[in-house]
Design a protein around this nucleic acid. Structure first.
Lengths: 205, 205
DNA sequence: TTATACCTAACGTTCGTTCGTTAGTCAATG
DNA sequence: CATTGACTAACGAACGAACGTTAGGTATAA
């Protein structure tokens, strides 16, 4: 089973470079140097440069489907909502902070996110992926949360789509800030805490 | 006074290309083709490629300083706040929608915004600019608005920084969505209206 | 033996840039 | 008033370097 890991190393290095420079601005030589092989050797593993991008996107997509918090969410049967009294503002803040830490530090997720950010205006496929992963799925996830909290009479009965946007968008913006300036993570964590607390305060029934 | 407009045309075309492909992935030949001259002629107007980027950034920066809504804001003496009763949710929604339309459609602002988005992980100078223009200034602007509305006893006395983040971040996210999928502008405009209305509802004193 | 992973070398193309030339503008000069 | 000279903006041609890619050889291991 122990297959060659060079192919995997190439994909890792490619994602890393694409996440900073973008696809076009990353050269085959750069990539080969990062892996520690000659550039011709890349063609033992991939047909051409485009094939590398396609495979990187594929793995990003697969990693997202396997590990994303946002795609499947059953708020009525989740562990942290079994005990209805557990859904306090403090607990919600802790939950979101945990998810944020994960999303910020997971190497695949963070690099994939940056790559989509860079390529979203040139590559239609990646633009669609960006809308799905970093807008639609996130919004749907938190919309489910809002519906749950409204049903449980914890929050006021306002438009759950708008509530989800108001809840998630600051976090989206702060994620982007941390991607640019990672040293501000602690500051952002504190803002997130305040944001979630205040959200529960004003929307509390 | 009638100076050559070729230089200006080059800068326009460069911003347009940088806003889609980024700086590195845009070639001198591409740029020359877009302007309608030979690539060697570019060097009659600029020292080198980097000089073109520097000048583009300079003009984006200058355009921002001259026209941005967010840099100067005197909420206590603004026209639409002179009449304190004019600051209703409906009027705030209309105001924000107007600002959003402008920000979305102004050619310089929208292209500059996209360029910063693409270059934010590679170019430290542009990363800083991105944080300033599309995070700090926006947050400060709406923080001023929130402080004003609290002082006027229109909104509850909660943390104005968090209120500003909750108010502005959904709009920031929706701007990015429109940059990617301009056909969704009407949908976004309706979301903005709902968002502002709901924000005023839940924060109303 | 065959297949695989890597190598060196080279391919043709495009990159950013430089050079020398040309055509046009315009003010000063004789 | 015609001629000159300086200046400008465009050009074609060419540069060396880097680009993505291919061909062919070599060593290792099943």
């Amino acid at each position: 089973m122990e297959k060659s890991n060079t192919r995997k190393e190439i994909l890792e290095a490619a994602l890393e470079l694409f996440a900073v420079n973008g696809y076009e601005a990353t050269s085959i030589s750069q990539l080969a140097d990062a892996v520690g092989i000659r550039k011709a050797s890349l063609y033992s593993h991939f047909a051409n440069k485009q094939d590398i991008l396609d495979t990187v996107v594929e793995t990003v997509l697969k990693g997202y489907a396997d590990h994303s918090i946002f795609v499947r969410a059953d708020w009525d049967n989740a562990a942290y909502t079994k005990d209805k009294t557990g859904m306090t503002a403090e607990n919600a803040a802790k939950l979101v902070q945990g998810q944020l830490r994960y999303i910020l530090h997971d190497p695949h997720i963070s690099k994939g996110r940056k790559m989509l950010m860079i390529e979203q205006f040139r590559n239609a496929e990646l633009a669609e992926l960006q809308t799905k992963q970093n807008y639609r799925d996130v919004l749907n996830y938190f919309m489910g949360m809002m519906r749950f909290l409204i049903r449980e009479a914890i929050l006021k009965d306002e438009d759950p789509e708008i509530m989800a946007a108001q809840f998630s968008s600051p976090i989206t913006v702060w994620i982007n800030l941390c991607d640019r300036e990672p040293e501000r993570e602690d500051e952002v964590m504190e803002l997130v805490r305040k944001h979630v607390m205040q959200f529960f305060t004003i929307y509390r029934k």
